[in-house]
Design a protein around this nucleic acid. Structure first.
Length: 813
RNA sequence: GGGCGAGUGGCGGAACUGGUAUACGCGACGGACUUAAAAUCCGUUGGUCCAAAAACCUUGAGGGUUCGAGUCCCUCCUCGCCCACCA
């Protein structure tokens, strides 16, 4: 008898699958197409980690399932090789990013092979390959030509450790999401992509795709649409005007002071002489504060009076103008009207500086506007608002807006929290931005036939504190001529962020070797939308949002046939360390998945353990024992196939076995469709246990054969190696992974009898087995005569008799 | 402060649309096989009480709706993730 040894089975099939290219996707196949996309990794020096394995295992299971259902499946893989992590790793290893990247990629490939994922290897891409980034540069130029890529001299988020600017999305709690360094501010000239132009489309597009609520909500919150009004306030004894943005224009009678952000340009023009000194010193103080300090809402409010007054356009009252850093320059107009009766921050500020408070709701005490509206908008009754007092907020809102518009002192305004995307990085390892700066013509795009602008190989690629890219030191690279006038000009030396290459990579899989276009029209049309995109929740407001933006733009300029790139998105949960905390090198609690394979559990054992661990989208701790259970199950399946001395004397079909076969097909199929991989596996385990018990009894040979085939076919997506091995042992032709997914027959799922639960007053008292076609009358009779039930009921009167067909009886006494 | 989600055995987790709570797996305990161990196989395994049968209790806490609630409603507690002085 042979023992189950993954190390003897798995390498053999890796080679065969690879040689026969069984997972190759066909362009223009007549079969229905399906794109299963998982996020491609950046090839780090540590190799694949548990998070990768979970993502690709789940994607692989689904891809294999869909493939067996007769689809032309595209399940691609590539490498997101440009960017900070790769470069920081190279610096640490004292080798060039080119070297480290190619070394790491070959390690990743080896590991992927060992893991046995069903990728179409022929379509592999690498974002740092000039043949690839030529098209990233080309796409950037399309943004430039449409005015959606522009340069701005602005205060940006700066990571002092990585020595580069960052986008808004890359700053998490005031820290750089990659290295956790506190972010500071730096004034730099930057390339910016105008993602804000797509705020509305990115919102409405969400209604056309299948995303889980939490992902859609996160994007909606990030885009942060709010509807309100811009209102102009005249300034007393001045010809200046102060424009504010508010979402609560109906509280305008409660305004008792105005607040400007410390950076507001109007401050210099309106501050009274006697206040200049204190205003200047406050501005200085605010400037030196880090983002994190400034954002802490537990901080006591601080501020300073400018000496100037604004005039309330509706009642003419004079309102002092203050400065405070709780107002942000980069949202709205950088100025607010303060209504301390309804806004907590304004209230705190008013209390501290003893400013008057007017309550504009009938409660006549502090009530948060947001809370009030949310609780019951009809109960919010306005007060202290002249002729509007007594109205509901909804009505007051409408009328005051109309009044403001009629008087031409303001207008309706839609405001988004989304900021434009800071797109340049002062680092070496990225796509050079294909722009030439000409003294006469300004920023000029590199002509298309000169793409790609190659990243020069240089020795000194370390970043510097001055905000200049390492490329600026390379004279052969920098010095060039203007494509328009031929005058000596300088190349742009900033590079693109690592999110550039990944913003369109899925499209390249359709046509990875095309050197005329990023992908041909025909292939874009054939493959269409990504049917299923699985990835990390942490990319919701980064990669996922960015790539939706790019794709929407490409659609608008007619380069892709669909508006949204991903028809269905799901996010997998995180696998924590055994102690329930995040796996991290510094804590030393990292589990290396490849070790698990090498310990003898095999790739199949690893896949199975991960799929069985918990629902795919749940964050859950890793347990080393889960692999033991997975391995034991596979071993049991293996031994089931080793049984040689079976008694096949049975001529008739075993109806119960027939039921089991059809039932397991049904449940496993439905569970995979619903991505309930853990319960699919528990069904397969139960089924296996039943077969194992049956194997000691007389059997019908054909039926038994079918039972075994069903088992390994249903198991194939989860454990590709073992199922292929056992399939070949049944001397079936071809790969099990190209075989047709089993179909159940409903007629075998009809039970002749059912177990009926009998309750008295809702409490379980007895169970009986009765025929499926029993009438309610008959059932009542049987239940009444059940000795246990009889004794419980005794002389009590039965007031109700509830029957749930084929399931339950409840007697109420 | 805002958004989303979750609390079920010793542990990971099941439970379809309100209808047998604790499936499946791990661990533990007992037994078989073995000189022994591993592996495997067969049992037991939410709690209280108990010789046993039965009974009673149990899905974070409390209340409600219902013949019947882990599931629906209300109040509260705890935890996780994301965002956060966004006017």
């Amino acid at each position: 008898m042979e023992f189950y040894k993954p190390s003897k089975i798995e390498p053999k099939w890796q080679k065969i699958w690879s040689k026969k290219e069984i997972y190759k996707a066909q362009d223009f196949s007549s079969k229905p197409k399906f794109i299963m996309l998982t996020e491609f990794p950046y090839p780090s020096g540590d190799g694949l980690h548990m998070g990768h394995i979970r993502e690709y295992t789940l994607g692989d299971i689904y891809a294999r399932y869909i493939r067996m259902n007769g689809y032309n499946v595209l399940f691609p893989m590539g490498y997101d090789a440009f960017g900070l992590p790769a470069e920081n790793y190279a610096i640490k290893q004292h080798i060039s990013p080119q070297q480290s990247t190619s070394k790491n990629i070959s390690n990743f490939k080896k590991q992927f092979e060992k893991l046995g994922f069903s990728f179409d290897q022929s379509r592999e891409i690498n974002t740092s390959d000039p043949k690839y980034y030529k098209w990233t540069q080309w796409l950037f130029l399309q943004f430039f030509k449409k005015g959606l890529a522009y340069q701005e001299d602005t205060l940006i988020n700066w990571c002092p450790f990585c020595k580069t600017g960052l986008s808004n999305e890359e700053v998490i709690n005031g820290r750089h999401e990659r290295c956790d360094t506190l972010v500071t501010k730096k004034k730099l000239k930057q390339w910016v992509l105008k993602i804000t132009d797509y705020a509305e489309k990115l919102l409405t597009g969400l209604k056309t795709v299948d995303y889980p609520k939490n992902i859609a909500d996160q994007q909606i919150n990030w885009i942060g649409k709010s509807e309100g009004a811009l209102i102009d306030f005249e300034i007393k004894n001045s010809n200046q005007k102060l424009t504010i943005f508010t979402t609560a224009h109906d509280t305008i009678f409660g305004v008792t002071f105005m607040v400007l952000a410390p950076e507001h340009p109007l401050i210099a023009k309106i501050t009274k002489d006697e206040q200049i000194a204190s205003v200047r010193s406050y501005q200085k103080m605010a400037e030196s504060k880090s983002d994190l300090d400034r954002q802490d809402d537990n901080n006591p409010k601080t501020g300073v009076f400018t000496g100037a007054y604004a005039i309330n356009p509706l009642n003419g009252s004079h309102i002092p103008i203050w400065i405070s850093d709780y107002v942000l320059m980069n949202y709205g107009t950088g100025a607010i009207m303060s209504v301390p009766g309804n806004d907590l921050r304004d209230y705190q500020f008013a209390k501290k500086y003893e400013l008057p408070i007017i309550y504009t709701s009938k409660e006549n005490e502090f009530v948060s506007y947001q809370d009030q509206i949310k609780k019951d908008p009809t109960k919010y009754i306005m007060a202290h608002s002249e002729e509007f007092s007594g109205l509901t907020f909804k009505e007051g809102r409408k009328r005051i807006l109309k009044l403001i518009e009629d008087k031409k002192i303001g207008k309706k305004q839609i405001q988004y929290r989304l900021r434009d995307w800071i797109f340049s990085r002062q680092r070496y390892w990225g796509e050079p931005i294909p722009i030439i700066h000409c003294p006469d013509h300004g920023a000029v795009p590199v002509p298309e036939n000169e793409l790609p602008v190659l990243l020069p190989k240089i020795d000194d690629y370390l970043p510097s504190d001055d905000g200049l890219s390492p490329l600026s030191k390379v004279e052969q690279f920098v010095n060039t001529t203007c494509p328009i006038c031929n005058k000596p000009s300088k190349r742009e030396t900033n590079t693109m962020p690592n999110w550039a290459g990944s913003s369109w990579y899925y499209l390249r899989y359709f046509d990875p070797n095309n050197d005329q276009q990023f992908a041909s029209k025909d292939k874009l049309k054939y493959w269409g939308k990504v049917d299923f995109y699985l990835g990390g929740m942490e990319h919701t407001t980064l990669h996922l949002l960015y790539s939706r933006f790019w794709h929407n733009f490409l659609y608008d300029i007619g380069l892709v046939p669909f508006q949204e790139p991903y028809a269905k998105r799901r996010g997998q949960g995180i696998i924590l360390a055994t102690d329930g905390t995040k796996m991290s090198k510094s804590k030393g609690n990292v589990v290396n998945p490849i070790d698990i394979i090498d310990q003898g559990y095999g790739a199949d054992g690893l896949h199975l353990a991960i799929a069985f661990l918990a629902p795919y989208d749940q964050t859950t701790p890793w347990s080393p024992e889960s692999v033991v259970g997975a391995y034991r199950f596979l071993d049991r399946v293996y031994r089931l196939f080793q049984k040689t001395k079976l008694d096949f004397s049975l001529k008739e079909l075993d109806f119960d076995l027939e039921y089991q076969i059809n039932y397991v097909i049904k449940t496993v199929t439905e569970d995979i469709e619903g991505l309930n991989f853990n319960t699919a596996l528990s069904s397969l385990m139960e089924y296996t246990n039943k077969l194992y018990k049956l194997s000691t009894q007389p059997l019908n040979k054909d039926q038994w054969q079918r039972a075994l085939e069903t088992l390994i076919q249903l198991l194939a997506p989860f454990s590709p190696f073992l199922s292929e091995e056992l399939w070949s042992g049944l001397s079936r032709k071809g790969s099990i992974h190209l075989s047709a997914w089993p179909k159940y027959r409903a007629e075998y799922l009809i039970k002749s009898s059912n177990l009926i639960v009998i309750q008295v007053n809702g409490k379980l008292r007895s169970k009986i087995e009765v025929s499926s076609n029993i009438s309610d009358q008959q059932l009542k009779e049987i239940v009444r005569n059940d000795p246990r039930i009889k004794s419980i009921i005794g002389n009590s009167k039965i007031s109700r008799f509830i029957i749930v067909k084929n399931r339950l009886v409840n007697i109420v006494i």
